[in-house]
Design a protein around this nucleic acid. Sequence first.
DNA 1: ATAAACTTTCAATATATTTTGAAAGTTTAA
DNA 2: TTAAACTTTCAAAATATATTGAAAGTTTAT
Lengths: 168, 168
Amino acid sequence: MELPEAKQKFIEAWGKLGSEWGINRTMAQVHALLLVTSTELTTEEIMESLSISRGNANMTLRDLMGWGLVEKLHKAGERKEYFFADKNTWNIARQVAKERRKRELEPVMKILDELVKVKGDSKDPEFATFNKSVTDINKMAKNVDKTLETMLKAEENWFWGSIFKMFK
Amino acid sequence: MELPEAKQKFIEAWGKLGSEWGINRTMAQVHALLLVTSTELTTEEIMESLSISRGNANMTLRDLMGWGLVEKLHKAGERKEYFFADKNTWNIARQVAKERRKRELEPVMKILDELVKVKGDSKDPEFATFNKSVTDINKMAKNVDKTLETMLKAEENWFWGSIFKMFK
DNA sequence: ATAAACTTTCAATATATTTTGAAAGTTTAA
DNA sequence: TTAAACTTTCAAAATATATTGAAAGTTTAT
């Protein structure tokens, strides 16, 4: 397989994975493109390369910057903005974990905390079932949250090393 | 907050979280409804309770059974099918992890394995960048895969116990 | 000030996903 | 059989999400 075809395959695969995980396909594709490109790219080049419109490219790049996955730089004497992605996979994973935790896990945990407090007759099977499910899910959410917190603080080797210890 | 309102809130929250993670909202809501209901429910009751059509209820329940999150049972002397959800949170997490691993991680890993093999001139920055990104992502994917495998085999206490050791 | 170079916005449009509901299919009891 | 009770299917409709592109906005150089 030649490099351009391989890049194309990577962009497609990353786009598909992204869309399966609630990240818009174009956003994942722009990210993928920047990951496999050694130079910084302009909006123009990204539009061209992925056949997307200016508006789409602009919004997507802003989103990616909002996620902390892409940065822009200005070259001396030029007015165009150049974009590049952090290529450190560990940073990418941490950044995604950080954002999703904030955007999705936190709001759900807030609701669960409310629901755990709901009082009722523990003899009532409906209440008992509700209470058990909500309490259990709340505990798991807290475990996930703590694990993510650890991951955010951790160095890559330490983190995977710890995971591997689980295999004994 | 009263129980019916609390159930409603839970169903909404679970539906929202699901849709942010690539699981269709209705599917997550039906699952949530079954999680907080002590009795088995018929298609009719689920349709009624969530205001969804028969077709939608039927397809969603089949999907949930496909994910291994819901089962049906037949009551003696009755023709209707009754549905209920496994209420063990750890089982739910494992089941979801298992399915998504098979449906999403495996196909991506297959592509990454191909892309890692692509040969090129290591003096060419374009090739070097491509190769590094793909190789790094492949490694992380393999780590995630192994962690999931461990999780699938593990008992709940052992798994979270191991995670907690990470905090020292 | 002006205009060229560039970026951002957003209403309109296109695309993708989900839902409906009525018809077709299946099973069971009599 | 037949018919009632129930489940499944799927084309059409509704809804939600993503994309376009031209106009408006901004910045910089002259």
